[in-house]
């Protein structure tokens, strides 16, 4: 399984999509963290390194989320289309081991992408003489990476059986629903009937990605961290990952 995970990770990292998006992400980080920009948030000019750090982390979270979806989209369908599956399965690798490994490989590639953005932030922390920010921002990134890992796993699992575009749309929907979880939760509480029931099902299937982001933010600001949403998202990630044990295509 390690060979498969390693190979998937290597393929994703060597992919063009990864390089293009990673380059754009790092360029944005450079623009944001070098300060003296005209960035306005909530009507206020954001300047100064300390103010830029949360903005840079937000961008990292957002770009990494999208990249997690893009990176994970094609891995499994490509394996079936190229029929690389044949040469793997004849070597006694079980379908579940195969799907699990490909999914974990995707997750690691997503994590790597997030950490590579973070590295540019570390460089700026050092360059601006703020090494004290390295540890809190690292912890913040680790918590935020749970969201990317979840998105990657969800897209990978959907792509086992569904076409690539369905997996892509599902990934974006999960991301949006996860980020708007709190808002949808409140709307579902106030709504009634079929709409409320549908919203409840959607909420049940989607982790509260915004709450995870909030905990990451709490680490940065020194506010108390609630492990609840983080654990709940990890559990959902675990369950999604477990689906790789039972899902496979009829024809390989």
């Amino acid at each position: 399984m390690l060979a498969l995970i390693h190979n998937t990770f290597r393929e994703r990292i060597r992919g063009k999509t990864f390089h293009v998006v990673a380059f754009i992400g790092m360029a944005i980080m450079l623009l944001v963290t070098t300060g003296d920009s005209n960035l306005m948030i909530n009507g206020r000019k954001v300047s100064g390194f300390e103010q830029m750090v949360p903005v840079a982390l937000s961008i990292t979270g957002f770009v990494s989320g999208l990249l997690a979806v893009m990176v994970s989209l094609r891995t499994i369908p490509d394996e079936f289309e190229r029929k690389t599956t044949h040469l793997v399965l004849v070597r006694g690798i079980k379908p579940w081991q195969y799907m699990f490994s490909l999914t974990v490989g995707n997750m690691l590639a997503s994590l790597f992408c997030m950490l590579s953005f973070y590295v540019s932030l570390v460089v700026f922390c050092v360059a601006y003489g703020r090494p004290g920010l390295i540890l809190p921002t690292f912890l913040c990134i680790i918590v935020m990476s749970i969201n990317s890992l979840f998105l990657s796993a969800a897209v990978s699992v959907v792509s086992i059986r569904a076409p690539v575009y369905v997996a892509g749309v599902a990934g974006i929907l999960v991301y949006a629903a996860g980020i708007l979880h709190g808002v949808l939760d409140t709307l579902a509480d106030t709504a009634q009937g079929v709409g409320a029931a549908a919203a409840r099902i959607l909420l049940f299937l989607t982790p509260d990605l915004s709450a995870v982001q909030q905990q990451a933010s709490n680490i940065l600001t020194g506010a108390p961290v609630d492990p609840g949403p983080v654990l709940a998202t990890l559990l959902l990630l675990y369950l999604v990952l477990s689906l790789t044990f039972v899902l496979f295509r009829k024809e390989v």
């Binding site: 190979n7 290597r10 393929e11 029929k83 044949h86 040469l87 070597r91």
Partner: peptide, 28 residues
């Protein structure tokens, strides 16, 4: 122990010939 050579060989295009062999040897 079975070895299989497919009609249309399909390998991960980003790997070198040596890496392909290394990958399958690890799977075995």
């Amino acid at each position: 122990k079975t070895g299989y050579s497919p009609e249309t060989p399909y390998f991960h295009p980003f790997l070198t010939g040596h890496e392909v062999m290394r990958f399958y040897s690890r799977l075995q």
